[in-house]
C-alpha cells in the first residue's frame, strides 16, 4: 500500500534571493564567450606531427556572498576589514570567521579601516602575467592596513622603484570613482606625505641598474 503525501508548504529557502538592482558592464572591447572552438592547426613537413589550436572562453561569476562588503567597500572608496568580537584580532583581507581555534569559528564583525598602512616587505617586479606587462616595473608591497594582523599585497606608486623601504608608512589611494570595478586594483599604496626616501646607496644603485632595461623593454610593447 503506497501512501500519498501531499506537500502543502513550499520548502523553506536557505537564504533570501538577492535582488541585483545595480549592474555594470566594463567588458574590454572584443571580449566574448565563444565557448570551445577549434581555431586552426599546423602539420610538420614530414606529416608526422600535428598541433591543433583550441580556443576556450568562459565567463565566470564570482559570488562574493559573505565577503561582499569588502568588494562593495572598494567601490565606495573604503577598506572594510573584519574583527573577532571574542579575541579582537582584525584582518584585511577579511575573514568571516575567526582564525583562532580557541574562538571556534566565531563569526566576525565588519569594521572600516583607516586608509593608512605600513610596508612589511617589498619587491620590484620586472616581469609579470600577461595582463600586467605594460605596467612594469611594478613595486609590489605586502603591507598591514590599519589594525590588520595580516599583510595585504598591492602596488606601491609615487616613487622610484629603488626608493621603496621596509617599514615605510603608506597611504591608500583609490582610483576615481567612475574607474572602480570592485577589485583590489581599485586602490594602490603611496608613500605617506611625511615620508622622505633615504639617499642613494649600493642596493638602490643595484635595483636601478636592474630596472633600467625593463623601462626600455616596456617601450617596445605594442
Amino acid at each position: 500500500m503506497v501512501e500519498t503525501v501531499v506537500v502543502k508548504n513550499k520548502k523553506e529557502k536557505f537564504a533570501d534571493i538577492p535582488v541585483f538592482s545595480e549592474k555594470k558592464e566594463y567588458r574590454p572591447y572584443g571580449v566574448q564567450e565563444t565557448g570551445l572552438a577549434f581555431v586552426g592547426h599546423e602539420i610538420s613537413e614530414d606529416r608526422s606531427s600535428m598541433n591543433q589550436f583550441l580556443h576556450y572562453d568562459q565567463l565566470y561569476t564570482i559570488r562574493h556572498g559573505w565577503n561582499s562588503k569588502f568588494f562593495i567597500g572598494l567601490l565606495d572608496g573604503k577598506i572594510m576589514g573584519t574583527r573577532c568580537p571574542k579575541c579582537g584580532d582584525s584582518w584585511v583581507p577579511v575573514r568571516t570567521h575567526c582564525w583562532n581555534l580557541n574562538c571556534n569559528l566565531q563569526k566576525t564583525e565588519w569594521m572600516e579601516m583607516p586608509l593608512t598602512a605600513k610596508v612589511h616587505t617589498w619587491t620590484v617586479a620586472g616581469w609579470s602575467g600577461r595582463s600586467s606587462l605594460k605596467r612594469l616595473p611594478i613595486i609590489l608591497v605586502y603591507a598591514n592596513i590599519g589594525t590588520s594582523k595580516v599583510a595585504m599585497a598591492n602596488e606601491l606608486h609615487g616613487l622610484d622603484p629603488w626608493d621603496v623601504e621596509f617599514g615605510m608608512p603608506l597611504k591608500i589611494v583609490f582610483k576615481p570613482k567612475e574607474q572602480r570595478i570592485g577589485a583590489v586594483n581599485d586602490f594602490h599604496f603611496e608613500p605617506a606625505d611625511s615620508w622622505e626616501p633615504l639617499p642613494m646607496n649600493p642596493e638602490k644603485e643595484r635595483i636601478k641598474k636592474l630596472v633600467e632595461p625593463v623601462y626600455e623593454w616596456v617601450k617596445t610593447l605594442k
Partner: peptide
C-alpha cells in the same frame, strides 16, 4: 599566460589583479 594560470593558485580575489605572479610573491 602560463604564469597567470599558475598564479590562479594564489587567492585570485586578492592577489592576481595586482601584478601578482608566483615569482613576485617569492621575491617579496
Amino acid at each position: 599566460q602560463g604564469s597567470e594560470f599558475i598564479a590562479m593558485a594564489s587567492d585570485i580575489r586578492y592577489e592576481l589583479m595586482v601584478g601578482g605572479i608566483y615569482p613576485i610573491y617569492y621575491a617579496a
